[in-house]
Design a protein around this nucleic acid. Structure first.
Lengths: 200, 200
DNA sequence: ATTGTAGGCCAACATCTGTTGACGTCGCGG
DNA sequence: CCGCGACGTCAACAGATGTTGGCCTACAAT
């Protein structure tokens, strides 16, 4: 959408194919993880020859890098009533995980592959930490708070969307929000680990 | 230690080799995940021939099953002062993750491989849920509460021990305990999602 | 109409994978 | 002392994988 690396560049005749490859890659990576998602399986699902994947994306790693493009799109503090901060954030994260397979892909690959782990760190550093800076009072604390929020949200996503544990997958969405919201809110706003936000 | 499947069975001459293979397998699986941990790399690290792995464990899956043997060893309610329940549990889980690579292995493999995911579900069902039954009031709620605790603990372990995110890996252990303890305690003891345990 | 070029496929490569079977060798019970 | 079974190695298999280069086709500019 707004990648500064590509000059606008008039549409190539192969854009449809590229898109098909990327869509297939996202699904294969999400379902199979990095190692078991083969270039051949991606190509087959996209209905083209494996060598096209190499031509357009250079290598399997290049394909992964191109396929996983995450924008957490975290709302601004102004858009959320301060009372419902935790609730709104948890809702937002659940939306992200459900509307798309890209986060499942990122987590699956991040756990086993260097490139995936690096990409996760990047998303964390460039999107979550800045967001935490906007929400919290002390910017120096932002990485810690962002990390705490990520730990809870990623843990739930792991059980619910990746591993599909019974109790996690079946719990109604509103219950998930109700349970996690106070946790997330405390991680962002509590003055310290002990406080709950309304102590003297 | 107390596996009811094996008859005591007099020590075989190959026990040292078996143990070496298992130790090597645990490390390879922990570091590389299931797919990239090859039978050959395990054998090389154990200093023996790849075919020995097959002879003793049947297949790569058999090796994995034999290598990953988790006992969470969750304390009994009586052993913990009720005030410090969250703290004691978080301490215990951090111990588990740090003393051994087996949980790292389980998480790494669980995310990409069916057998690993199934093993995780088994640990959850046979160890975490029963523990939650012992700690909580309403046994019917145990799976939900165990799942919530697991989500927070696994999320933190993911960032701290598997991905080794800076802020998660560097945070002093006592701070991790301080932040997570209230969360875990609430998941176990709060009467419902909204309550914090001391509301009217 | 011709031609250059980008899009696409086919076949092959070198390598690595899990797995198997044949072949030695050591140690212990008879 | 002998023989048999457990222990271990070697070599090879069949299949899959990432990747490469050659070749054909069809479009677009001249």
């Amino acid at each position: 959408m707004s990648d500064p690396h590509h000059v606008p560049a008039r549409p190539r005749r192969s854009d449809a194919t590229r898109a098909a490859i990327l869509a297939a890659a996202r699904e294969r990576f999400a379902v199979d993880g990095y190692e078991r998602a083969t270039v051949r399986s991606v190509a087959a699902q996209a209905g083209i020859d494996p060598s096209m994947v190499m031509r357009y994306f250079g290598s399997k790693e290049g394909l992964f890098a191109a396929a996983v493009d995450v924008d957490l799109h975290i709302p601004e503090p102004g858009e959320i009533p301060r009372e419902r901060l935790g609730e709104a954030l948890v809702q937002h994260f659940l939306d992200l995980w459900e509307q798309d397979t890209v986060l499942v892909t990122l987590l699956r690959v991040g756990v086993t592959h260097r490139a995936g782990a690096e990409r996760m760190r990047e998303v964390f550093r460039r999107q979550l930490v800045p967001a935490a800076e906007r929400f919290g009072r002390d910017p120096a604390d932002a990485p810690r708070r962002a990390m705490l929020v990520a730990s809870q949200v990623l843990g739930m996503a792991l059980l619910r969307y990746v591993l599909r544990f019974g109790p996690a997958a079946e719990m109604p969405r509103e219950d998930v929000v109700a349970w996690l919201a106070p946790t997330v809110e405390r991680y962002i706003t509590a003055p310290d680990a002990r406080g709950v936000g309304d102590a003297p």
